[in-house]
Amino acid sequence: MPRPLLRSAALVAATLTTAGALAACGSGDDGSAADAPSSSTGGGSGAFPVTVSTAFGDVEVPEEPQRVVALGWSDAETALALGVQPVGASDWLAFGGEGVGPWAEGRYDEAPEIVETLEPSLEAVAALEPDLILDTRSPATEERYEALSAIAPTIGQPEGVDAYLTTWQQQLDLVGQALGRTEEAEQLRSDLEQRIADAAAANPGFDGTEVAVGAYSSEGFGAYVRGDTRVDFMESLGFTNKQAVQDLATESFFVPVSDEQVALLDAPLTVVFPIFVEPSQITGNPLWQTLGSVQQGNAVLLDETLANAFSSGSVLGTGYALDNAVPLFAEALQG
């Protein structure tokens, strides 16, 4: 999971409940526009100017972007999926290097400048001379949006969507519009949705099966509710989020689970994501061992890479999770 220097940002975004300061997180050297790579923009299918509707109003992108800075969670992966290489990007999950997961590796000709996450340096962003800023899944404050918009046209989350809750479909649509690649975005969306439908059809036992989707960190256990990419993914496969967990939902997509409430994670299928902890800290936890789903072999503890694929919430990461997690779920249900 994320390295210590970036843990506070990723944990806030991953849970929105963890106590801790919303401090600015590590970034690479600011760099200069002259030293930064140019975005790859060949093959765009849209005519410019284009207007993109967001929670902060309509945003006009006057011409095909040549220098894209991707600041929102998985915005860089989404741009890469559409064939555009950002010159700057935030590394929310602290992958290091190019700032993307293994499902998106090899898509850069030259690594982008890495920019802070929760509080990106405006000077660093401006130095990259962007003509488009992507910020579709982020803290989503008016102040952040206005500051970034003063540098370049900025694409925030869709109207009616709270911080960090932009779905991979919405993100793909927004980024596709802004880059003039709506046809490519529609094709990627259609392809992945078909793959998900095929996986659900191939596993009829998923349909209607209750699932508890949890996490474990140094703060203890917690559970996700609808609106989180992890739960939404599970329900797209036919699962139903455990009602007792869903009943605890607030404005956050994450529910703390006290030691006395750990039984909330017991379900016909339990899926748990480690956050900044080794899997052994979960499997060796006496509370984990009390769950009926664990005792019966119906619990799945994801490894770091697969947990990050789910957490990325991008079209590429979701595809990776689909290929690698569905067999684990099917095996657990047979156990």
Rank of each mutant, 00 (worst) to 15 (best):
Q187T: 13
I196L: 14
P286C: 01
I282C: 00
R195N: 12
Q289N: 10
E260T: 05
Q246M: 11
Y216S: 04
V262I: 12
F254P: 01
F276C: 09
R181D: 00
I275V: 11
A185P: 00
P268W: 10
L287A: 06
F233N: 08
V262W: 06
G180H: 04
G222Y: 02
Q289L: 09
F206I: 00
L264Q: 02
P286M: 01
G220W: 08
E186F: 02
G297L: 14
Y216V: 02
E235W: 13
E210W: 08
E260W: 02
D247M: 05
D232I: 08
D303T: 08
N285R: 07
A215Y: 12
L192E: 02
V231R: 10
D266P: 04
V277K: 12
Q295F: 13
V213H: 06
A267G: 04
I196F: 10
D207P: 10
F221S: 06
E186S: 10
R189E: 14
L188F: 02
A202V: 04
G297T: 14
L192G: 02
A200L: 07
W288D: 05
S190Y: 09
L265Y: 07
R195E: 15
Q246W: 12
E186P: 02
L291K: 06
G180E: 09
N285W: 05
A249I: 09
E278L: 09
P286R: 00
V272D: 07
V277Q: 12
A249W: 08
P268N: 06
M234Y: 15
E235L: 07
P204E: 03
T250Y: 10
Q295G: 13
A185I: 01
L302V: 06
E260V: 01
E260S: 06
A244E: 15
E251D: 15
Q261H: 05
L269T: 00
D259E: 15
V255C: 01
Q289Y: 04
S258Y: 06
E193H: 11
D247F: 02
Y224H: 07
D266G: 03
S218M: 08
Y216Q: 01
F276A: 13
V271W: 14
N203R: 08
L269N: 03
S258N: 09
E184Q: 15
D247I: 09
G292Q: 12
S252R: 15
D259R: 11
L188T: 01
F254I: 02
F253R: 09
L287N: 00
Y224W: 15
G180Q: 08
V277H: 10
V277W: 03
R226I: 12
F239Y: 09
I275P: 06
S252T: 15
E186H: 05
G220A: 07
A244W: 10
L248W: 06
P274S: 07
P286A: 03
A267L: 11
A249Y: 08
F239A: 04
L264M: 04
V255Q: 02
D198W: 13
F254L: 02
D207S: 13
I275H: 12
G284S: 01
N298R: 15
A249N: 07
F253K: 05
S218P: 01
G292P: 08
S258Q: 09
D259S: 14
L291C: 03
T270L: 14
E186Y: 03
G214C: 00
T209H: 11
L188R: 03
V213N: 02
V231M: 10
A267S: 11
Q261E: 12
G284L: 01
